[in-house]
Amino acid sequence: MTDKNYRSLRNRIHEIIFEADTPTGKFFDVFLMISIVASVLVVMLDSVASYREAFGEWFYVLEWFFTILFTIEYVLRIISVQRAKGYIFSFYGMVDLFSILPTYISILLPGSQYFLVIRILRVLRIFRVLKFTQYLIEVDQLRSALASSRRKITVFIFTVVTMTVIMGSLMYVVEGGKNGFTSIPKSIYWAIVTLTTVGYGDISPQTNFGQMLSAVIMIFGYGIIAVPTGIVTVELGKAANKYTTEVCRYCSREGHDKDAVHCKYCGHKLDP
């Protein structure tokens, strides 16, 4: 095979595997989605003892069939991109890799094949297949908002942790071991459960002061719930933009502006 024919073949494979705009690309992605869902169902059914006893051999064959199929697809994806490292260490690249590793690892560690349910994450590609561009926009906006909010959220979490440590320690002093607060860590566990308004009820204060303190913590809990929501909502308002589903051949990233000529992540020219 000449170098020109090899490049043409790589381009054709890339068009089929990474692009959902062409008939063959859409057919490939739909077939891939069906295979992913079917493989996850096989793993789930195999975990049911009665089904495993009746159809264990079929499940074993199907598991290896899907694993080999996805392995071939993974190799083709690496071959078809200009920079294999960009795809391998991308989000989808890591998901694709971890979706096939458990079967091979199960040869040495029996039972690890049940981690194959991670394949369900690959169904996220259905947004591209069905051209749900608006959903891709929202996903990218949410990701951007969370990234922009990380410092504020970190400070918020640190504040909540500090509050639970103080409240838990105070409750340990007030209630003591006779009422179930046998240690500071267990009292902090109670404070976390109460502050998050979960309220398991396995530990509860018995003294008047302890009950008053728990009421204060529960009220704080309702107020605290709204804080991270407000932080992310503000950042979401700043993240509005319009993107396409085009995948860069060099870094395997998507989410480019509709009028983009070059990839905003690696700088290479996008395909026309």
Rank of each mutant, 00 (worst) to 15 (best):
M1N: 05
D3Q: 11
N5G: 05
R10Q: 13
I13N: 07
I16P: 00
F18N: 09
A20P: 13
D21Y: 08
K26W: 02
F27R: 10
D29Q: 14
F31R: 02
L32A: 15
I34P: 00
I34G: 04
V40K: 12
L41A: 15
V42L: 14
A54M: 11
G56E: 09
Y60K: 14
F66Q: 01
I72V: 14
E73L: 15
Y87W: 15
I88G: 03
Y92Q: 06
Y92E: 02
L97F: 15
Y104L: 10
L108Y: 10
L109M: 13
S112P: 05
Q113W: 12
V117L: 11
R119P: 12
L130A: 14
F132T: 01
T133G: 10
D140M: 10
S144M: 01
A147D: 06
I157T: 05
T159F: 13
V161A: 07
T162W: 06
I166E: 00
V173D: 00
V173T: 01
V174C: 01
G177P: 03
G180M: 04
F181V: 01
T182R: 06
I188D: 06
G199Y: 10
G210V: 08
S214L: 04
S214Y: 06
I217T: 08
G221P: 05
G221K: 07
T229H: 04
G237P: 05
G237A: 11
A240R: 15
Y243W: 13
K258N: 12
C263L: 09
